[in-house]
Design a binder for these strands. Sequence first.
DNA 1: TCTGGGGTCCTAGGACCC
DNA 2: TCTGGGGTCCTAGGACCC
Length: 441
Amino acid sequence: MAILHTAPSTSATRQLFALVDVNNFYVSCERVFNPRLEHRPVVVLSNNDGCAVARSAEVKALGVTMGMPWFQMQDLARKHGIIALSSNYTLYGDMSNRAMTILRDYSPHIEVYSIDESFLDLNGLAGHWDSMTAMGQSIRHRLRQWTGLPVCVGIAPSKTLAKLANHVAKKRTEFDSVCDFAAMTESELDTLFATIDVGEVWGVGGRISARLRAMGVKTVKALRDASPAWLRAHFGVVMERTGNELRGISCMKMEEVSSPKKQIMSSRSFGTMVTTLDELAEAVATYVARASEKLRQQGSVCGAIHVFIRTNPFRERDLQYSNGIVIPLPNPSNDSTMLTKAALFGLGQIFREGYLYKKAGVMLMALTDAKKRQGTLFDDGAGDVRAANLMGVVDALNRQYGRDAVQLGAAGIQGSWATCADNRTPKYTTSWDEVPNVWAR
DNA sequence: TCTGGGGTCCTAGGACCC
DNA sequence: TCTGGGGTCCTAGGACCC
């Protein structure tokens, strides 16, 4: 009976994904425009030239790790002539767009997963190629020819496996940069998986891999063969899903349209230590401008703004201070001026004299369409007053309890924006009289 | 001397409600 | 003396990703 066909069979639901990932992306971008960097040890450094954010194969071979501070590789750099470049994110973004555009020719469904990697939905494409490996090679050659970027391609029935196949394509030269698990036999995969460390699996980071190893699960094969119930009991639903993905059961869909960000952050480390509120304020104003521009681009408004500052945790001799505060916005807004006022107000609450500040930042809590007008972020904790207009609520409470009984709690963070004098103590408060200076009505 | 900048999801536990 | 139970919401913190 035709109706019964809705029951999924393994073959009917079999998926096929490719993961295309640019090798050493930032370094490769730099090499496109400066071929003399080819075959030489190159690192791209983070903001303030602090630490390595991309490494060429030559540099990796020297033992330079991701995130290694530049000053720690000085000896290596002198000895081996490591070339260090400051990062140029505009360039990398542009190169990324070019590469992703080319990939769209290969599949109608592509998910741009990060600046240097994309998933391709390969379902129904097999008929167009002698093999999917051939398709992978075509992608690789075309990207190299048209953009100058070297890539590896992993192909498999689940995203997690495609990531792993990509890893294999990168590490094992015999695959010639394209690895298709779907074209390999069970025993070939068993052999391969038994040699790959469990920490290489997408979703298995440092903490979990250490715990897994301690429990005897040391290889990809062991993780794949662990029982779902056991994984769930010890590591939760995410790891259970990872186990299923490793067995070729696709649990993660393509996400072709990127959903709007829920949080938009802008922060920087300072090149030199900062001590004054004025300097911090200038930086914070810049961050708000940058973040609110992203906010407007995605058509959101900001419901609350998180400001944070901290000293340099690496300088253990220094007096340390780290603090942050969330300022709720009575009227969600995407206006730079308004957001800056709120952020600077928050900064004023957490700033303390006498510290050497190293970093500051802001995070905007974005509200997208559905939540825009509801003002659901804040609750008075006593009833169902929803702060569509925080000022009005504070006014009302003050009338009820007497003037100044209620203050605007900057601790408004943690969800309690207003505090009754007789009932709760906020972390930070400001007098009601100051508020109009902060949020111009 | 010198150590990046973004993000997401899940879970445990407490507060609160009926 | 004995003091429910189920559901929801919220937060902090942990873990992961690039």
